[in-house]
Amino acid sequence: MLPQKAIYWREAETILLSDLHIGKISHFRKAGIPVPQNGSTDNFNRLDEIIAATNPKQVLFVGDLFHSDINREWDQFCAWRKKYPSVKMDIVLGNHDYLPEDFCSNYQIDIYPTELVIGPFTFAHHPREEFNGDEYVISGHVHPVIALSGMARQYVKTPCFYFGEQQAILPSFGYFTGGYAIDIQENDTVIAVAEKKLYPVQLRIAVTSLGV
């Protein structure tokens, strides 16, 4: 687990991350909504950090790598992609990914439209409600956030990794993305991420997060 909101799968030397939403800021600006442009560089800085720290063979994007139609922020991504020619990159498509046809060749990224099975894991963008046998699904999409509450009615809301019985959900990696408080079942594990640190939370009973 990496505090940059990604997972490094050691055996496969693969980085797993989800929901970058590249181009979101430009998409807004193109529509006349003035979100500061320089926010977009934050994503690439963190990607660089992770690759430098782990030196992976592969990066797997579990959907919503891009936010919407093509725009110039994609060129930034393309430039970033070219920095790591030896790293294999794959994407399982998400609901925001509207990829052009020449995407694979231009960006050297392999596309899996709905899911990708590697070893015991199924990678899919949307979390599942039903499972095939004993597969373990790793997904994204919901931008999970946990609301922690304690004595004297204090609380903190922060992005998190979620690990349930049969599936895990990745936090959203992207900079300009929001979050949704998730429900937690018995015996689930949640790892909260805040200020580049990890905080494991383990529960025996179910907790319904109220969106605070």
Binding site: L148, Q154, A194, Y199, L203, R204, V207
Partner: peptide, 27 residues
């Protein structure tokens, strides 16, 4: 309102949250 470090608060809250919501032993 807090002047405690986020790190301290989170550690404290996680502990309290776990106490209230059940888990004592780590898996």
């Amino acid at each position: 309102l807090s002047s405690e470090k986020l790190e301290d608060r989170l550690t404290k809250l996680v502990r309290q949250f776990e106490q209230v919501n059940g888990a004592t032993d780590k898996k």
